[in-house]
Each structure stands twice: as C-alpha cells, then as structure tokens.
Design a protein around this nucleic acid. Structure first.
Lengths: 231, 231
DNA sequence: CGATGACTTGACACCAATCAACTGAGGTGG
DNA sequence: CCACCTCAGTTGATTGGTGTCAAGTCATCG
C-alpha cells in the first residue's frame, strides 16, 4: 500500500492520463502527493475561488466545469471525461466550479505540493502543459460548436463528444451511450433551452439516428447521420 | 546589438509579456533564440499544420486565431492583443491559423529550440504554462459571450474585450478605440452575420453609447451602457 | 393519494438570418 | 475629368429557427 497510495496499479486511465509516460519512480513520487476521492452526482469538487487544489485527474465518471456570472447564472464551459485533466496551475485566479455529473472518482493534487513538484520535475510540468493545451483545443472545439451551428448540430455534436470521450476506439453504429447530463445541463452547455434540446432529440429519434433508452441512455443507430458533412 | 538581439530594451510589452519576470540573464538567453518579425494586415503568421513555430509573443498590433472546417469555413476562436501569447507547445497538433488583423510585430520562437529551453529553465516553462492558462480563461470568456448572449451583448462584449486589450488601465468614457476587424471578422468571431453587427452598432450609436469615427474608429461615450448589468 | 421534478409536446412570439437594394470610398481606365 | 468598377458597410423587407409560455406525461417519493 505504501508503494501504491493512489491505487495507480489498477487505475483504469493510467495509460492515458497525465500521469502516463512518467517513469515508475516519478509516478510513485507523484502518487504520494495526491489522494483519490470519490464524489456523488451533483457534488461540488471545487468551487470558484478555492485554491487548495491545483490539479486533478478524472479517473471515472464525468465532470462539468462552469462559471457563474454576476446574476448567479450558470454557464458550463467544459466537460471532462475519464483521463481528463483539470489544471489551474499558476493561473491568475480559479474562476470555475467543478461539479460531478455522475458518481465519479478523481485523483486530487494539492496546490503547494504540486507546484514544488513541477518546478523540480520538468517532465511532469511538460505533461501538465500538454494537458492544458488540450483543454484549450477542446475549448476551441466548443466555441466552434456553439458559435455557428444550429440546434441540431449542437446536439449531435454533444452526442459525439460524449461518445468519443466515454469509449476508446472508433464509434460504431448501435453503440449505447450513457449521457449523464440532465436536459438542463445539456441546454446550458450548448447555449440552448431545455425544450429545444428535447425537440432535437425527438427529431433525431424520429429520423432513426438515435434511440432513447431510459432517461439517460442513448443508442447511436446511425453515427453518419450525427457527424457533420465531410465534403 | 549582440546583447539585445530582439530589441527587448525598448519593447513596449517587456513588463507584461511572457518574458517579463525573467531575470536579465534568462531574458537574454531567451532573446537569442527568437526573432522579431513584422506582418502586414491580412498576412498569415502561421497556418494550421505548421509546426516550425512553437510560440510567439505579440508585441504590437492585433492577431486572430482561426480554424477552418471541412468545407473551408473560417471560425475565429481567439483574438490576441499586445503582450498576448501564442503557444502550442507540446500540443498534439496545431490546428489554428494565425492571421494579422492589423500591421503587427511579434517575437517568434522556433519549436526545437524553445522546447529545449523550457526543459532546462523551469521558470520559463512556468510562464508558458501560466500564459496558456490565461488563454484558456479567455476561451471560456468567449464561450460565455457567444453561448448565451444576444446580438447586442456580443457586440458590446467585443468592444470591451478590445478596449481592455488595447489599453492599459481602466476604461474611461470618451476613449477612442481602434477596431482593426472588418465587419465580417467581427461577425465571424461573435457567431453573427455582418448585417446584425452593423445594425447593433447603429443602435448603440443611436443610443449615444458609442460614436463611429471612420470605418475603424469607435469612441466609447458611455462605458456603463456597454457593460453587462452588475446586480 | 398527492407532490415533486425531469422531461415532452404544443402554440405563439421574437430575434437574428437571409435576400436584396443602396451608399460611399478607393481605384482604374478611357 | 469622369465613367465605371469593386468592395465594405448600411439599411430595409421578409422568413425561419429558437425562445417563451403553457399544458401534459411519467416516474419517484412521502
């Protein structure tokens, strides 16, 4: 147990998360600094302004990052899938709140200890930087999605984001997708209303592109009908 | 000249750019690795897929970052102001094209040499990481702006982004703003059409919030009328 | 059994997209 | 010098997609 305090040995994302690629020794060093914690759906992982946690890796489940404006209106700015990385290292301020979308498990690394670790292990810092770059790229993907697409494309875009994030390997027709977001959360993320999201799903189901199975389950019947045109 | 190859000594952003905070020695080390280059409005600074440039600091002028989808449609995902930082270090792929919005000057750092420098100077890497985090935060700001705001709020939001980016210090009524974007570029960035942008500017001018001075100049008459409600 | 909350569906209104015409500046050439 | 073109921008008329409001369904829970 002393040698594997975070349970890395059976970590489902050890090969793809930010910790991957570190040597055995470095990983153990890192593992000693963090702790693994589980959250239930709806729980706040950290709130805006909380600076105790510097970064975190999502081991299982799904997490949303959102902000609240002056009126207290929520705005979801990112979704995280397993192996996803939350980093606010050296940021001027932490302005996002992280909330569990489903029951989930994370490896949390406290700020002080991680900043020291990063300065002495440039490999680790490099991986953090790479992860932050990927976060930036997916923020750009989201900008693309909500900036110019109509309601249908936004909904299909979200389905594809989740399908790709929750499974490894390419998508196949018939795949069952667990969408842990409520309609309200989907709407908030996509910049739509609950009603519009619901209607789009109805349309997609009528077209035979998807089938709803229970409140959260969505079976992707024809992936090609969801993807944007490739010409 | 050997001691100041990039012209750092009279650099207008030396106190706020990514290079600030480095010691004199480190900055000279860094300066030896980069080169300063000027671009004219419309020129491409680097295209998607070009991996020769790892990062760049904008010294003067304005730059847009955009992507092109399968149909070749442009989607602007970020704007850069002086002291702004472009980094795609360790990213899986460079997917953005950087274009000069106005005549501008940048310090460019080639990829190979910068990655070496980062690994040996953790101070530098830390600043790059911080800059990338700030880029992420402004991407989130943009998501907020275009995801749920109406046309008026998007246009005023852009005006404020540019006003804050192009001057240091707080905003004051009566300030003249040079908006180097064409209507089409504004529309693309905000996820609107040219016509809607034009109409919103007309409305804002009729309300006395702004005054258009020439094709590019906008005088901010009442900043309070542009800012979102704070209650 | 009623209450609650997530979701769906319908009717309608409204904002922004679309299509189209017009203006004005800058450039070119007869 | 003026006719003409082009291109960015503005303005107007109309359409359509999405928001809004409202009602209704269904599952869960006390």
């Amino acid at each position: 147990m002393m040698h594997d305090p975070l349970g890395c040995d059976d970590c489902p994302v050890r090969e793809i998360a930010v910790c991957a690629g570190l040597g055995e020794v470095e990983r153990r060093d890192l593992a000693r600094l963090g702790r693994r914690k589980s959250y239930r759906r709806g729980e706040t992982i950290f709130a805006a302004g909380d600076s105790s946690i510097a970064c975190a890796t999502l081991v299982s489940g799904a997490v949303k990052l959102s902000r609240f404006d002056a009126q207290g209106t929520e705005r979801t700015v990112a979704l995280l899938h397993p192996a996803g990385f939350l980093a606010r290292l050296f940021a001027v301020e932490i302005d996002c709140t992280a909330t569990a979308l489903s029951d989930c498990t994370l490896c949390l690394f406290p700020r002080d200890v991680v900043e020291r670790q990063m300065r002495s292990h440039s490999d680790f810092m490099e991986r953090v930087l790479r992860a932050t770059s990927e976060q930036l790229a997916s923020a750009h993907n989201l900008i693309d999605l909500i900036g110019r697409r109509d309601a249908r494309a936004r909904v299909t875009g979200l389905l594809l984001i989740f399908a790709e994030g929750s499974c490894d390997g390419p998508l196949a027709d018939g795949q069952l997708l667990d969408l842990p977001l409520t309609r309200g959360e989907v709407a908030n993320f996509l910049g739509l209303t609950i009603e519009t999201v619901s209607r789009q799903l109805t349309i997609l189901e009528a077209e035979g592109a998807i089938a709803r199975e229970g409140p959260r389950g969505i079976r992707l019947l024809r992936v090609a009908a969801l993807a944007p045109p490739t010409d």
